[in-house]
């Protein structure tokens, strides 16, 4: 069972995770803008920029994050932003939120000049996460775990980051046992997806370059 302190931590993380939302004026464009590759590229770029800002607001609320060295805060976010955004995108596509937008968003991604070499693995990853039937609690905790990953480049005080990540991993592990009693491997499979997420991190810079050229 989760201790009352762990329950409190879980609700706090869930609450700040659910506050994340990209401003209405951007999601409205998703519906209104015309469908040229150029327009889609610009719209997706604007959405990604806004998504990073929303992600930073979530990160600032993570227990203990503001106590970290400022440059380590930057290094953690730089190292995890792409992975955290892929997780959030997987949730959006798998839970079809908000209704109807997900299909339109997928259409725009597929018509934005991005090469299929990157689009196919991206949507395969979303599907593979979908098969895990993750709950909102798991998405929010896994995002917090991804952000507070100590072994990112340029982190000076890894130990402090580890101390912040550990309680979140403990809650996530217990949560998996409680929410997926039929699948004792569920927690291990979640962590396995984090390894796959890292590969996207590496390919992302390459993808951006080829996308801009296209």
């Amino acid at each position: 069972e989760l201790t009352s302190e762990q329950q409190g931590l879980l609700h706090y993380i869930m609450d700040s995770y659910n506050r994340q939302c990209i401003p209405q004026y951007i999601t409205r464009k998703l519906l209104q803008e015309d469908f040229s590759a150029e327009e889609n590229f610009l719209l997706l770029t604007e959405m990604a920029t806004s998504h990073v800002q929303v992600l930073v607001e979530f990160t600032k609320k993570l227990p203990g994050f503001q106590t970290l060295d400022h440059e380590d805060q930057i290094a953690l976010l730089k190292g995890s932003a792409v992975e955290a955004m892929f997780l959030r995108s997987a949730e959006i596509f798998n839970r079809k939120m908000p209704h109807g937008h997900a299909d339109l968003l997928e259409e725009r991604i597929r018509n934005s000049g991005m090469s299929n070499d990157y689009i196919t693995p991206m949507f395969n990853f979303y599907k593979s996460l979908g098969e895990l039937k993750m709950t909102q609690e798991e998405y929010s905790l896994l995002t917090a775990v991804v952000i507070l990953t100590p072994d990112r480049q340029y982190i000076k005080d890894k130990e402090s980051v580890e101390k912040l990540q550990e309680p979140l991993l403990d809650v996530l592990q217990k949560l998996c046992q409680v929410q997926h009693p039929e699948n004792p491997q569920h927690f291990a499979r979640l962590l396995g997806r984090l390894t796959e997420l890292r590969t996207f991190n590496h390919h992302h810079a390459e993808m951006l370059m080829s996308w801009r050229v296209n």
């Binding site: 506050r19 610009l42 770029t45 604007e46 990604a48 920029t49 806004s50 990073v52 800002q53 929303v54 930073v56 607001e57 600032k60 400022h70 805060q73 930057i74 976010l77 730089k78 932003a81």
Partner: peptide, 21 residues
Amino acid sequence: PASNLGLEDIIRKALMGNFDD
């Protein structure tokens, strides 16, 4: 516009600012 900023610039600005409102 913000979209021309690199990832690090966006992060630095967002850490200092407050995009909640």
